[in-house]
Nucleic acid binder design. Structure first.
Lengths: 342, 342
DNA sequence: CTGAAAGCGCTTACAG
DNA sequence: CTGAAAGCGCTTACAG
């Protein structure tokens, strides 16, 4: 803030800095934008003036010229109830916010749970108010993906967008290999009747983790018993229901690979109510390594998704896309985390 | 988008709309801003032109003039790990995002976990890049509150900011009365050795819920046994530790009022490991009615915080503050939710 | 390397 | 009620 000739408060502009430094506004702008074609002397004078006046750039004025907003949207199109319940969401959101903040780029949080919200957010984004979007949408054929792509808005998705013609950047954990590692581990510890609770078939996690399960059974020469495969929807409740079904269909199962920690929690509950000891009678393996995995009794053996790296990569890729790079995909390795349940 | 005379894509501006409607840009701007002093005919022509051209206002240009950004920050200064772990956070964040979205105001998510992050966010906010801030900061004497206030930035806090000279707007649940209702309920169901696990003494929930506990004991003529009062920090782990201490100090306790659901989860775990049946041997009451309350066995009897209303009120008050209204406080009633644990 | 000038897309007194 | 004009705070060719 500064006092104008009329004594009123107004914020300090590039003009004030220029006067203070004894240079033109153009020169101030040049040092602000990287200092190219500026003499060291002018550079120093301007920097001193900036410090003295407490100048901070007016981003609106800048954006008006450059056509860029220097902000990014984090768009959630998932049926929100479920995903907001998921502890992974927090980890992702926080890490993205911080990775962006490190570059001084604010994150606009947008939720497109209803059709009306979807329209509004799309209008805002396509209005050019953000430079790109970090997209969290796991269901197949989400129209948001193609709309954004058609509008020419840089997008990086979390997880591979299924059923899309558009070529969109994404970063994902290696679901299939993660699932393999877990099932292999169950097999190696002597389990032979290994069941699985899958995620929805229209999500990458639903498809890939099941594929990994099948891979290992084949590898090990174990027959694939379809009655041992039960679908879930990633919710805890669906884990309970799935476990009940399994207990009924295959009372002799000795292990379950569950495609998410939240569902694994449900499985654990049902198993314990059914009088099965974990891991003695039935070993349980989860997926995610979410905070939930620490709160079960026994602790959940699971597959860690590298959320920190996922977030960092998403941000890096989005910035690259905004800078003009072509779309690309990054697959990150997972890690088996052993606790008490298997 | 539109094609310029040179055939290049450029976005449609107020100028295009004016030409299409056969009026001046000033008139277009007037209908955009409420339609005052505009004839019905001009109004209609402009609206038609807007629809035809697909015009959407350039907010940067607008902000440059008005000095307002039409956006709001959601600032989290809590030591982040803990609060991001709290399911209440999600409920609050989602509801605020949606209440704001309904007014077409984007929410910028900011996390000030470290000193560096705090500075950066403050600089951004004080640079006038947001019109106001929704503040989530529960520890006493948070410097962010006074800095924001000193900079003249409208603020509405979630929960009463403790240890502040600044007069800041806030909305909070009626912690004290909520605690009273719970302890009264425990007493009414015949419990006489009622312990409590409190929140940190520098948070409103830590102070008020304990006060409510004391109120009821006094009301009922029960002696206050200080050894029955154990402090926690809202985390699940602290609930476990507190319960261990209580089991040791007061093996005859028959109820515990726990100041958060997360801690209550920990208490439940410890109790069950200690061989106590809930609610038969010990009744357990929580606070929050967070998603965690549904996932315990038995379900947690707790005090519901009206997060929807809290969020709605926060947004409403912030908008009022931005519009020039004086600070104010809103206290919202809580509700006792009975489940299996008490 | 540097200054003068145009212009980004809008809003808002001002004069009619 | 309406148009012409000034101006918000910047960036960026352009000419030197």
């Amino acid at each position: 803030m500064i006092r104008g000739t009329d004594g009123k408060r107004r914020s300090v502009t590039i003009h004030d800095v220029a006067r203070e430094a004894g240079v033109s506004r153009g020169t101030v702008s040049r040092v602000l934008n990287g200092g190219h074609y500026v003499s060291p002397a002018a550079q120093a004078a301007v920097n001193a003036a900036i410090r003295k006046t407490g100048y901070v750039v007016n981003r609106h004025a800048r954006s008006l010229i450059t056509g860029k907003s220097d902000s990014v949207a984090f768009l959630l199109t998932e049926p929100q109830e479920r995903f907001f319940e998921d502890p992974n969401f927090n980890v992702l959101l926080r890490a993205c916010t911080q990775a962006l903040a490190a570059q001084d780029i604010p994150l606009l949080l947008m939720i497109a749970g209803t059709e009306a919200e979807r329209r509004r957010n799309l209008r805002y984004i396509e209005g050019g108010h953000v430079d790109g979007v970090l997209l969290v949408s796991s269901h197949s054929g989400d129209p948001v993906v193609s709309e954004l792509d058609a509008a020419g808005v840089p997008v990086v998705a979390c997880g591979k967008p299924l059923g899309q013609r558009a070529q969109v950047s994404y970063v994902a954990a290696d679901d299939r290999e993660g699932a393999r590692a877990m099932v292999r581990y169950l097999h190696d510890s002597g389990r032979r009747r290994i069941a699985t609770v899958t995620g929805p078939a229209d999500t990458p996690g639903g498809v890939e983790r099941l594929a990994g399960y099948r891979d290992v059974l084949a590898e090990c020469g174990l027959p694939v018993d379809e009655s041992l495969i039960v679908p879930g929807d990633y919710s805890r409740a669906s884990g309970e229901a799935a476990a009940e079904l399994l207990l009924e269909r295959a009372p002799d199962m000795d292990a379950v690979f569950v495609a998410s920690d939240l569902m694994a929690q449900g499985v654990l509950d049902t198993l314990s109510r059914g009088g099965r000891r974990v891991p003695e009678d039935v070993a349980v393996g989860g997926f995610d390594d979410s905070p939930a995995a620490l709160s079960t009794r026994p602790g959940l053996t699971t597959v860690r998704q590298p959320w920190d790296r996922i977030s960092t990569e998403m941000v890096r890729m989005l910035l690259a896309r905004i800078a003009g790079e072509e779309p690309s995909a990054v697959i990150l390795p997972t890690e088996l985390v052993r606790r008490g349940s298997a």
